[in-house]
């Protein structure tokens, strides 16, 4: 198969790559662009470890083709911190021990940020349903949900 040429924007920087027509965006990120922060837990859209933003919509990058990135704005976990200064969610996850093994964490953070960008004052139930597509086997979600609610409150306090 002839490779496709794709021009896109990743974490604010212009990026070009070649990929197979059937190659997923997750494989492009991990194997071609060395952006291994997005993880593959299932490859079938069921775990959320591969969560990224596609034009401000939360998607599973394992369910998206690399070719679909053409002309789009992609954001990954690698773009969440501002240089070495962490996003408030990242900082709160650390302070609240909202990660154990950390494999779900990149996807959780990308998904949680998408929620707070859309809804700065979510209820516990809203957080739980929003994150229902992000599996975590380590934490029982308790500290994750608390970290998201606490960050929302903190951001609102500053606004």
């Amino acid at each position: 198969m002839a490779k496709m040429h794709v021009s896109t924007t990743i974490n604010g920087e212009p990026e070009e790559f070649l990929c197979e027509p059937n190659e997923t965006m997750l494989d492009v990120l991990r194997d071609r662009l060395n952006l291994t922060g997005s993880k593959e837990g299932c490859g079938s859209g069921d775990c959320g470890a591969c969560s990224i933003m596609l034009n401000d919509t939360l998607v599973c990058s394992c369910l998206m083709l690399g070719a679909e990135a053409e002309g789009a704005e992609i954001k990954t976990i690698e773009g969440m911190a501002d240089g070495l200064s962490l996003h408030p969610l990242q900082q709160k996850f650390l302070e609240s021990a909202a990660l154990q093994c950390g494999i779900c964490t990149p996807g959780m953070l990308v998904a949680a940020k998408a929620l707070l960008d859309e809804n700065p004052d979510p209820t516990e139930t809203e957080v739980r349903f929003w994150l229902a597509g992000n599996l975590c086997r380590c934490t029982g979600y308790d500290k994750i949900v608390r970290a998201v609610l606490d960050t929302a409150e903190e951001i609102r306090g500053k606004a």
Partner: peptide, 14 residues
């Protein structure tokens, strides 16, 4: 922790 919240931590498949 910092590596794990920024996607830098290196897991086996990385």
């Amino acid at each position: 922790g910092a590596d794990k919240v920024t996607g830098r931590a290196s897991f086996a498949a990385d």
